[in-house]
């Protein structure tokens, strides 16, 4: 019991961790499986290869462009063109921090709405011409077509738009972008915890200290004035 109670002040932040984890950009460990889900290296001259070459701290690994620097192992580019994909690979969320993604020349049939959940840094996404940009064209600054591919560029912030997409967040929470056409509600500053119901941190040590001291003092006082003289029954 005592061991469990000891790290009390640590507990609330610890419990928050599982809540906050998905909010952090999902770093794909050392390359992740999504980079190897399709054989071959980055296509020479593709948008991803060009982007990778333009970044000094990034290097290609499999189908990915992986960053070094402050976030080593983070996937910043993903080239899945000509991979015969009928649906998106399950490892796609590993690349949530990607800036450039290429899905062209795949027999993809649809892009589910929440496929790019968490892809907040995505700036350039190439999809087969038969598909719409995820989140609809209103979620992007610019949508262009090049041959057999559709290029979706520059995400719009869904929280700023006054249109139907603007989502009202509950009390104590603020809207934040969560990928193309997607928004999320995050707790605003002093609030935290499930549904952002909690505010600030309970002063555990102060409370325990005062209560303990008062209890000890009162017990001592009452013992000396009352029970000390008591005879055993």
């Amino acid at each position: 019991m005592g061991g469990r109670l000891l790290p009390l002040p640590l507990l609330p932040p610890l419990l928050l961790l599982p809540l906050l984890l998905p909010l952090l950009p999902r770093a794909g460990g050392a390359g992740g499986t999504v980079c190897g889900c399709c054989a071959g290296p980055l296509h020479n001259g593709s948008a991803v290869a060009r982007y990778c070459a333009s970044r000094a701290d990034a290097e290609p690994r499999g189908r990915c462009c992986v960053a070094g620097g402050p976030h080593p192992g983070r996937i910043v580019g993903l080239d899945l063109s000509r991979c015969s994909l009928r649906s998106l690979p399950p490892g796609l969320p590993e690349a949530a921090a990607a800036v450039v993604v290429d899905l062209t020349e795949n027999p993809l049939t649809a892009l589910p709405n929440a496929s790019f959940l968490g892809f907040t840094r995505l700036q350039s996404l190439a999809v087969p011409l038969s598909l719409e940009c995820p989140g609809g064209s209103s979620a992007w600054e610019q949508v262009t077509t090049h041959g057999s591919s559709r290029l979706c560029q520059g995400q719009r912030n869904p929280c700023n738009s006054s249109g139907e997409l603007a989502q009202l967040c509950p009390e104590n929470a603020l809207c934040a972008p969560d990928g193309p056409g997607l928004s999320q509600c995050l707790c605003s500053s002093p609030f935290h915890g499930y549904k952002c119901l909690r505010e600030g941190a309970f002063p555990v040590l102060l409370f325990c200290g005062i209560l303990g001291a008062v209890t000890a003092a009162l017990s001592l006082l009452l013992w000396s004035t009352q029970r000390r003289k008591a005879k055993a029954p």
């Binding site: 809540l19 969560d178 997607l182």
Partner: peptide
């Protein structure tokens, strides 16, 4: 509401 863990996990 997203994220799921924050709004709908209970």
């Amino acid at each position: 509401l997203q994220p799921y863990e924050l709004w709908n996990s209970n």
